[in-house]
């Protein structure tokens, strides 16, 4: 089958890619656009390390055919990171030591950003629900949950101290 041109918005900028059918968003980001913050843990939708936001919703980019994001707004960790300093969610992950090897971190940060956009003060159940699709093999989930609570406080303008 012939390659096609797909256009979508990436970090506020329109991008155009020439792709073979059924190429995934993950593959386009990593291999064509060099945006390797989006990780590649399983290509089976099982680990969440490739989580990006599509129109603000967290999605496993390894399962998403690029045709499906045509005309939509994609946010990766590269586009979340400010030119200077860190996004409050990123800062909270640093402050709470919410990673060990760091491989799940990009997906976790994107997921946390989406959660807090929808629910600025999530309770533990909501955080647990949100994290259910993303695996961390090293740290355990406690410091990640702490980071989300910490970021929630920071983004609402109070309680900016680390949770612990």
């Amino acid at each position: 089958m012939a390659s096609t041109i797909v256009t979508f918005e990436l970090g506020g900028r329109e991008v155009e890619v020439l792709v073979r059918p059924m190429t995934t968003l993950q593959s386009v980001l990593r291999n064509q656009l060099g945006q390797t913050a989006t990780k590649d843990g399983c290509r089976q939708g099982g680990c969440g390390s490739c989580t990006v936001l599509v129109d603000g919703e967290p999605m496993a980019s390894c399962l998403l055919p690029i045709e499906d994001v045509a005309g939509r707004r994609v946010t990766t960790l590269e586009s979340l990171t400010p030119a200077e300093g860190l996004h409050p969610v990123q800062q909270a992950f640093v402050d709470e030591y919410a990673f060990q090897c760091g491989y799940c971190t990009p997906g976790m940060v994107m997921l946390s950003k989406a959660l807090l956009d929808h629910d600025p003060a999530p309770n533990d159940e909501a955080i647990g629900q949100a994290l259910a699709g993303n695996l961390c093999r090293c740290t355990g989930y406690r410091p990640i949950v702490d980071a989300i609570r910490h970021a929630s406080g920071a983004m609402s303008g109070h309680d900016t101290e680390p949770v612990r």
């Binding site: 990593r30 291999n31 060099g34 390797t36 913050a37 989006t38 990780k39 590649d40 990766t76 960790l77 590269e78 990171t81 860190l86 990123q90 800062q91 992950f93 640093v94 030591y97 990673f99 760091g102 491989y103 971190t105 990009p106 940060v109």
Partner: peptide, 23 residues
């Protein structure tokens, strides 16, 4: 004391280069 990890900013920004991130 708690000290910030040297790889912390790399991990939260995705700038940490894992082996397969290179081309």
């Amino acid at each position: 004391r708690s000290v910030e990890r040297s790889d912390a900013v790399g991990h939260v920004t995705g700038r940490t280069r894992f082996a397969a991130d290179r081309a």
